[in-house]
């Protein structure tokens, strides 16, 4: 009886050991690449959101609400704006957005980094026509779907999510970054 029990324990242990070994190996082998890709994605998004900047530096800020990373964009040594990464709630999950804001608090551009919206519906938030609506917006604007922002037909929640995200990025800029 005991012998069988010990046998079973050993078998389970060995299987788990091998599984963890395989997983640890794969994790270690892919870790760097994954981190590199993540950073590359962020910087690419920052470039699209704030095209006039030539280089970006990660700006250490306390994460607040849905705001994640912030990148200071510079050109010729001067600050041309900030790229704020924000993840508002969408329809299928959080929408990872990069909002480019110039020193006067106006949106320069936005880029959708990652989303789980339905392709063809909420997925249209990636399209130029939708994203360009936010160019030039500031906290002085209403930033409300169906008022100054056109929603995507059949994807109101996704549209609202992006709009709220832009608003949050602008508010974050105002409270934390303006004048820095």
């Amino acid at each position: 009886m005991i012998k069988e029990l010990i046998n079973k324990i050993i078998t389970l242990f060995v299987v788990c050991l091998l599984a963890s070994g395989g997983l640890a190996f794969t994790y270690a082998a892919t870790k760097e690449k994954i981190e590199k890709e993540r950073l590359r994605e962020q910087l690419e998004a920052a470039e699209k959101a704030l095209p006039q900047a030539e280089n970006f530096q990660e700006f250490k800020v306390e994460k607040r609400g849905n705001v994640g990373a912030v990148y200071k964009g510079e050109k010729n040594g001067e600050v041309v704006g900030y790229a704020v990464q924000v993840s508002p709630r969408g329809f299928g999950g959080p929408i990872n957005l990069m909002v480019g804001i110039d020193p006067s608090g106006k949106v320069v551009g936005i880029k959708v980094v990652e989303h789980l919206e339905t392709p063809g519906l909420g997925g249209e938030i990636e399209k130029d026509w939708f994203r360009n609506q936010f160019v030039g917006k500031s906290l002085k604007d209403k930033l409300k779907v169906k008022e100054d922002i056109d929603a995507i037909m059949g994807a109101t929640i996704s549209s609202r999510g992006v709009t709220e995200g832009v608003r949050e990025a602008l508010e974050f800029f105002k409270s934390q970054l303006e004048g820095r």
Partner: peptide
């Protein structure tokens, strides 16, 4: 349980590989 451990391990390997490449 052993099947699940095996399957989950391979799924995680696939997941990590996709995440990287």
């Amino acid at each position: 349980p052993i099947f699940i451990v095996v399957i989950a391990s391979f799924v995680t390997i696939a997941d990590l590989t996709m995440q990287a490449y």
